[in-house]
Amino acid sequence: KLDMTNEYEAHSIHGQGDTFFANKVKELSNGAVEITLHLGGSLGFKSKDNLDAVGDGAVPIADTIGGVLAGSDSIFLLSSLPFLAANAEEARTLYTISLPAYEEFFKKNGQRLLYASPWPASGLWAKNPVDTVDAIKGLKMRTYDANGTRTLIEAEASPIQLSWADVVPQLATNGIQGVLTSAEGGVNAKFWEHLSHFTEVNYAMPLNFVHINGDAFDNMSKEKQDAILAAAKQADERNWAALLERVQGNYKTLKENNVTIVEEISPELQAHLAKAATKVISDWKETAGPRGEMIIKAYSDKVGRSY
């Protein structure tokens, strides 16, 4: 019996992915390993706590959004770097290239990485289409991490930091004009009650990491270990595959609620955002050192663009 914590709700993409993983583990180990899922942060741990909580053995398994680990290792800002991956395929390529670095990090902290899965791509939620440079300039938007804040400052928008619970009250009273998040985030919080447009800019697809305590894993029998690893592999496959379906489902919900999905943005805005992103990416390369440089280079070669 193993406890597993996750900050996100049961119906979220990661809640469903972890449920799939837990069921698979039980099935593949013939019931010898049972994972008790504590979703929605019901165990009291937030993503920020998970690295220490798993390392110290407070909980054996956790699902953690990558961004919060950036304070321990800047490699975790990679998956949320702006406009690096244009679609799910590229995000996966980036993940495959950086996987050894992630694995090494968890190993160094007495843990083992089981799998990582993506969030749907974030875009710009607002009352208007944000498809021109003029539309984004001065737009007061809530961002979810330091990368987003830096990018939007570079893009001359006005990023605002707010806790997620304050977002809906601020939207309802026009305290902010937009939100940088995925279509999924907007569906969960019913943004259509306040906003009418989702501009698909494919900003980034941040990763969530599922990690297990090293001792807990090593002390298990070979059969149990194999069952967990096999289930992790299947969960990994499933989550990347489920992404597309998820996005389509979200878009369907948005259309039902009269949200306009803006798929085309002006070439000027595209260039404007790319320029903002270049600054953030090159700053990141500086802090991440040669390892970061190598990953970006390998990735550039793979996708045929240079960063």
């Binding site: 007061k140 330091a146 006005s158 605002i160 930091q161 707010l162």
Partner: peptide, 11 residues
């Protein structure tokens, strides 16, 4: 936030 459209980003 209200007068300068910016934030301390760490509130």
């Amino acid at each position: 936030r209200n007068s300068f459209d910016t934030s301390t980003f760490v509130l």
